[in-house]
Design a binder for these strands. Sequence first.
DNA 1: TACGGTCACCGGA
DNA 2: ATCCGGTGACCGT
Length: 272
Amino acid sequence: MIDSYFVNNRSKCAKRKMDQEEREEEPEMKAKVFNTENLNKSNNSSCQATSSSKLSFLEMDRKVNLQWKQIISENLNLEYVQLFSETEADVLFQEAEKVIKYNADSKVFVYGKWHKVPRKQAAYGDMGLTYTFSGTTVVAQPWNNAPFLKHIGDLVSCLSGGHKFNFVLVNRYNDGNDHMGEHRDDEADLVPKSAIASVSVGQARDFIFRHRDARGSGAKRKIDPVKFELSHGSLLIMNHPTNVYWFHSLPVRKKVICPRINLTFRQMVVKK
DNA sequence: TACGGTCACCGGA
DNA sequence: ATCCGGTGACCGT
């Protein structure tokens, strides 16, 4: 049974995070990071859920006072912001735990073998949309089954300067053993050049980008990976052409004991 | 100091 | 998008 382990055990989780911070030096960041306020587009209009939500804070103006970071490297274009307060993110985490129905034993076909994915997976979106990768197809459940996801998507769409999203893939990482291997989001179902918006709640986890030309023993070039943490209540926007050149992963972290839920909002091709 | 256990990282399949 | 194995760093004793 899914509980609210992350929220109920906040002190345990927070302490563990502090231990790590004490141990570790500031990581090297070769990519350029720019701090910008209200990065996204010129006008001053507010951003909020477009339809009435029972989570009232989703209807607050989100555009003011956001401290965006722009993370730039060769063909890498990311925008990162702490979108929700800790309290708000707690509410979203618990709503997700209550509402989201995960697919039973999702499997993928990689290098000639079927594997159970090392996390839980679900998808919501417009009627009829599906997402196919590594031999598996995830079918969107209707937004009505999890309205808060639609509301977050609308909010993020506004904040990102008008990217449209009709689909959200939900990944739940129960602890540090749950992970996702290196890959690019380059599936045919995705609208070409569309941005992907990633909202995280629960346990903060490391996230790593590696350039395609800097991988493997015969790597053509030496390009430093880009590593940072996706925090509780954060939003990461991956802009084109990031997904053409950079692989990303959520590595195993043995010391992590708390769950994280990630929502990746996408624009999928509408099939005729 | 030396060693054993753990873990992060990376390449190969 | 998977797991597995080799390497090397790090930590505690």
